[in-house]
Design a protein around this nucleic acid. Structure first.
Length: 757
DNA sequence: ATAGGGTTAG
């Protein structure tokens, strides 16, 4: 029977029609080439659907076995994503039927295997049974499989074992290692490769860029050009992403010109990369030119790139109007827009977007939740943070290491060390960031010893600290006044890890020396450090001077501060207080005049407390609260009970010329006391009273709150500008270092927010 | 019938 001119089916349905015709004509049973043609083309149009696969295997079962047929059946499994046992059952049948496997057999088996164990067994079987002539194919697919499984060492070994390596083997191993972040190995192999094609270079460039080593990515690109290799469209995309990170507009622009000059195909990806580069560099003229010309398609990628650019440069409103114009928004659109709102302090808008995601049928992902947790952390919004935690517990999003770290950070920044610790303990995987967040959190919650114990444990578990970890460690030392430890870690970071102290590390060390009364030594460090001291450092010196009575040095520090930050009221107030302390009335009034002259505005202090999901905000002498009468009654009771245990208000804190009685009243009206009074009358007795304050807590309030915590047997938590105070049974976790309140807030604890949630 | 590179968000 002559071979029939059957058309090649393109869909499963067409294959089924051919099947029917071959059956009725008798070709299926009596003309093997036609049958093979049918099965082969059926496999080509398979979709990943179990029914399709079953159909193909059913057809396979009815044909006489051969190597080609088994290979085709295995190909079907690898295309259709079968149940994991199926390919190996097929392989066993093949061996039992005495059909010899060839290179393709192993290629498709490798494609189906999902574990190192399987691969190793297959590799061994392959070496036992394969003809050496088929080896190059198989070695390459073996490398491919190891790379897919993320097994770099195995991929490398398989590559090294090949005797005659072809160009694909080199390219594959170089790009595979680059993709897995093993950039040194990839770079070395590239220099040894006999053929260095554009694909190997491109994968290395992209890998450098992804690893935030954009400078090296550009260096790599230049080396490639010097070797006479011409970049193609994909190379340009990779280099553009490096330009975006470096804000190298010049190189980015020249790449754009190159694309136009050479008439390279401008795929959607290239358009996205161009818009992203221009937008990240802040060149919105060109970004808009490209975007308006070719970027306004229905797909969201190019919109996302320009929206992100506008957000990053503070044009959140422009970003929003583009957002509203879009037809199809994806999760990245929402996340970028929300990040923009969060960074510009518009937390309400971020929350509204979050809630509208459900209406758009978009599933919240862990990126979204990390974003929102960050917002809660900077707000100290504990109830909202807890609600997000509940979303995670209900498995609405899959918990990962970023999410766990953000969650523990949120609890820490809301002062809930206990809950943060539970999250930390339950995390299956931790990385340097997780440990650092834990150490930093313990540090600004006043648990310096525990922070250092965690640092020790972190290193026992094999994690190498980075410079941020050392900022956290130094913060722990300075907030808990651990002088010897601080000195040790400050030296150790250079010696053990070659981490050179940055301004933040110096800030902590200087603060620590100042707190410990070693003001001269602190000043020596300021003079000898290789970095220009900033305002934080001078503020540390200044407050050390106040506590340890170094008037001359205080004046010097204040002069530096006034130069660096002439509009900050803190400096004037601090210096004024120092003059008052040392009874230099004349200098004190000079400072007040200077302040008026320069029209320095005092930052309005406020305290807020959340009761039943509602934020209540108080400023000094605030009478606007609806329950003000009850609050005043509570304040009077507080005042009465405090006095009955021998407390006298620290009226020296008040620097206005009024009589003692008025001073007492003024202290009583401090916003934190108002908030606490409100907390005491409105919260259930077993709940802690949790206050957030935008400035530092004053010394009088600090001692008063200690007593209140004892008299009312209440836990009181105050988050001020740079740290937490946990008041319990008459003591505070900060060990009264608030007397020398740190100007150091090296770890961003607090961001000012215009309105609550 | 086979195997290699890229963009947008922490």
């Amino acid at each position: 029977m002559p071979p029939a001119p059957w058309p090649t089916p393109r869909t499963v349905r067409q294959a089924a029609e051919l099947h029917a015709r071959l059956t009725t004509s008798g070709h299926l049973l009596h003309h093997p080439p036609s049958a093979r043609h049918l099965l082969n083309s059926l496999v080509n149009c398979l979709e990943p659907h179990p029914l399709h696969l079953r159909y193909a295997l059913h057809l396979f079962d009815r044909m006489p076995p051969s190597t080609f047929l088994f290979d085709t059946a295995l190909r079907a499994c690898s295309r259709a994503g079968s149940d994991p046992h199926c390919p190996f059952l097929l392989f066993r049948r093949m061996r039992r039927a005495g059909v010899r496997p060839d290179g393709f057999t192993f290629h498709f088996l490798f494609k189906c295997s999902s574990s190192l164990l399987l691969c190793t067994m297959l590799h061994a079987a392959c070496l036992r049974t394969m003809l050496p002539s088929a080896a190059p194919f198989v070695s390459n697919s073996l490398i491919h499989m190891y790379i897919q499984l993320g097994l770099a060492a195995e991929a490398r070994r398989a590559f090294d074992e090949i005797h005659v390596k072809d160009a694909v083997a080199w390219t594959m191993v170089i790009s595979g290692l680059a993709k897995m972040g093993m950039l040194c190995d990839a770079q070395l192999l590239l220099s040894q490769a006999p053929v260095r094609d554009v694909i190997s270079w491109t994968s290395l460039i992209a890998a450098y860029s992804r690893a935030n080593r954009a400078k090296e990515a550009v260096g790599c690109f230049k080396t490639m050009l010097s070797h006479g290799i011409a970049p193609d469209e994909v190379t340009v995309i990779a280099v553009l992403s490096a330009c975006a990170k470096l804000k190298d507009l010049e190189l980015g622009r020249s790449l754009h010109l190159l694309v136009e000059e050479k008439g390279m195909p401008t795929s959607e990806n290239l358009v996205v990369a161009l818009i992203d580069m221009y937008a990240k560099c802040g060149d919105f003229g060109h970004a808009r030119q490209v975007f308006d010309a070719v970027g306004r398609g229905p797909r969201p990628q190019s919109w996302n790139a320009i929206i992100d650019g506008y957000c990053k440069h503070g044009h959140v409103d422009v970003a929003r109007s583009l957002f509203d114009e879009m037809e199809v928004r994806d999760i990245i659109t929402f996340n970028s827009m929300m990040t923009g709102y969060i960074h510009s302090g518009q937390l309400r808008e971020a929350l509204l977007l979050f809630m509208s995601m459900r209406r758009h049928d978009l599933r919240v992902d862990n990126f979204t939740v990390v974003n929102l947790l960050t917002a809660c952390a900077s707000l100290g919004a504990l109830p909202q943070g807890r609600a997000l935690h509940a979303c995670i517990e209900q498995r609405l999003v899959e918990a990962d290491i970023y999410l766990g770290t953000a969650l523990l950070d949120m609890y820490m920044k809301c002062g809930r060390v206990d809950e943060a610790t539970i999250v930390f303990r339950r995390m299956g995987k931790r990385d340097v960031h997780t440990w650092t967040a834990m150490i930093a959190g313990l540090a600004f919650n006043g648990m310096g010893k525990a922070a250092l114990e965690h640092f020790y444990q972190m290193r026992c578990d094999g994690f190498q600290p980075n410079s941020v970890s050392y900022i956290a460690v130094m913060t722990a030392c300075s907030h808990s006044c651990l002088l010897n430890e601080g000195r040790m870690y400050f030296d150790e970071m250079r010696i053990l890890y070659n981490i050179h102290p940055q301004i933040e590390h110096y800030g902590c060390m200087i603060d620590l020396l100042g707190r410990s009364g070693l003001v001269d030594e602190a000043m020596d460090l300021v003079k000898t450090m290789p970095i220009q001291p900033n305002a934080v450092i001078w503020a540390s010196i200044l407050s050390a001077c106040r506590v340890h009575k170094h008037i001359d040095l205080a004046q010097c520090a204040a002069e530096h501060l006034l130069k660096l930050e002439p509009d900050e009221d803190g400096v004037y107030v601090q210096l004024y207080n120092i003059y008052i302390d040392s009874r230099q009335w004349e200098n004190a009034s000079k400072i007040r005049m200077l302040m008026e002259e320069r029209q320095v505005k005092k930052t309005a202090g406020y305290s807020s407390i959340t009761v039943a999901g509602q934020v209540h905000k108080f400023v000094v002498s605030d009478k606007s609260h609806p329950r003000i009468l009850e609050i005043i009654a509570m304040l009077e009771e507080i005042s009465h009970r405090l006095k009955s245990v021998g407390y006298s208000p620290l009226t020296s804190q008040i620097t206005v010329d009024v009589d003692e009685e008025e001073k007492e009243q003024a202290l009583l009206a401090h916003s934190e006391k108002l908030a606490i009074a409100f907390g005491l009358i409105s919260l259930a007795p077993n709940l802690p009273v949790h206050i957030r304050k935008n400035l530092r807590i004053c010394e009088d309030c600090h001692s008063a709150i200690k007593l209140i915590s004892r008299l009312w047997n209440r836990e009181i938590i105050v988050r001020d500008r740079s740290r937490f105070h946990h008041f319990r049974e008459g003591t505070c976790s900060c060990n009264d270092f608030c007397k020398m309140m740190s100007a150091v807030s090296s770890i961003t604890m607090f961001s000012v927010h215009p309105q609550g949630w």
